[in-house]
């Protein structure tokens, strides 16, 4: 005889649980077994065990349908976490105290990274500068080593160094090994400029190099004077070069009216050069000098300002001699 036990769910005739898509196929009666282990408290206010009616309540039904709506599902999966994170962050940073703490912590971490020995600069090496200039540079770039390379503004240091008068150009970089390498190219003085305020050295571009106390310190350099002379150093150097044949007689070049040059020789002689093409005019004077020994005579001024009409002014004594001398013209009269 076959034993027969009445169950309350006559719908299920399944001998073993099915796998695959059928596993989800649920008939109206409760087919899943009661869990063997269960916390005793859950049963009290959890779902009713062995509920006979499997019908969901209206609310449950609607809630499930709502939760199965694609938009709601997406909202819960994406929107809700985002909202939760935003809300948590908002609440946390709502208080100024905590905000400051976070800022301080970040700053702390930042400093601790910047202060690592790999980033520290210990000394400044200056190449291509004389002793005085090096001292000047160290003076204008006041850094107290060791300093983190994050705190160095290399651009600004370079601008400061380039701003120094004797410096033509400079490059600043942090060399491996924690050295701040400064490569300086110094300005070379080529000319001495005497003004009412003192004596200065200029380089070939007319830039100020140094102020000196006496002309004698740089006796080998040519001398220029006059207002605005520093703007035309190149021309002055050409003139000096041209007047080289005069040797030691050249005293210097004077800029007149910020317009033209006067070449000053010893014995108070002066060669007044035109505004346009002064070198050519000087060459003419030198050519005459070569042939006629013009400048050896009692000539005070050779005026070359008008190219068509070079003029000579004699010295006072010579003029007086000239008046007392009877000049014999070529025909003997």
């Amino acid at each position: 005889m076959r034993p027969l036990r009445a169950t309350r769910a006559p719908v299920i005739h399944r001998s073993k649980p099915l796998a695959g898509p059928d596993a989800d196929f649920s008939s109206g009666a409760r087919s899943e077994a009661e869990p063997k282990l269960r916390l005793s408290g859950v049963k009290l206010f959890g779902r009713k065990s062995q509920r006979f009616d499997p019908t969901p309540s209206r609310l449950n039904y609607r809630l499930q349908r709502w939760m199965l709506t694609p938009g709601v599902r997406r909202g819960l999966r994406v929107g809700l976490p985002i909202f939760a994170i935003c809300a948590a962050a908002g609440i946390y940073f709502g208080s100024a105290e905590r905000r400051e703490a976070v800022v301080a912590y970040v700053a702390d971490v930042k400093t601790s990274i910047q202060q690592r020995p790999e980033f520290m600069v210990n000394l400044m090496a200056i190449d291509g500068a004389g002793t005085n200039l090096s001292e000047d540079i160290r003076e204008v770039v006041p850094l107290d080593f060791p300093i983190s390379s994050w705190d160095l503004d290399v651009e600004q240091i370079r601008d400061t160094i380039t701003g120094l008068d004797p410096v033509k150009s400079a490059s600043v970089r942090v060399r491996p090994g924690g050295i701040l390498q400064v490569d300086v190219e110094e300005r070379q003085p080529v000319i001495v400029w005497r003004t009412r305020r003192g004596i200065e050295l200029l380089d070939e571009t007319g830039a100020h190099v140094e102020r000196i106390a006496s002309r004698k310190e740089h006796a080998n350099l040519p001398l220029i004077a006059g207002k605005g002379a520093d703007a035309h150093v190149a021309e002055a150097l050409q003139l000096v070069n041209t007047a080289r044949s005069l040797g030691g007689r050249v005293r210097g070049i004077v800029r007149i009216g910020e317009r033209r040059w006067d070449l000053v020789l010893d014995r108070g002689q002066r060669i007044m050069l035109p505004t346009e093409r002064p070198v050519r005019a000087l060459e003419r004077v030198l050519a005459v000098n070569e042939v006629q020994d013009l400048l050896e005579r009692d000539v005070a001024v050779v005026d070359m300002r008008l190219g068509q009409r070079p003029t000579i002014r004699m010295t006072k004594a010579a003029s007086e001699d000239w008046w007392n001398t009877k000049v014999t013209v070529g025909n003997g009269q």
Partner: peptide, 8 residues
């Protein structure tokens, strides 16, 4: 409702 909920 029961059938529909389970199927859904």
């Amino acid at each position: 409702r029961t059938a529909l909920q389970a199927a859904q």
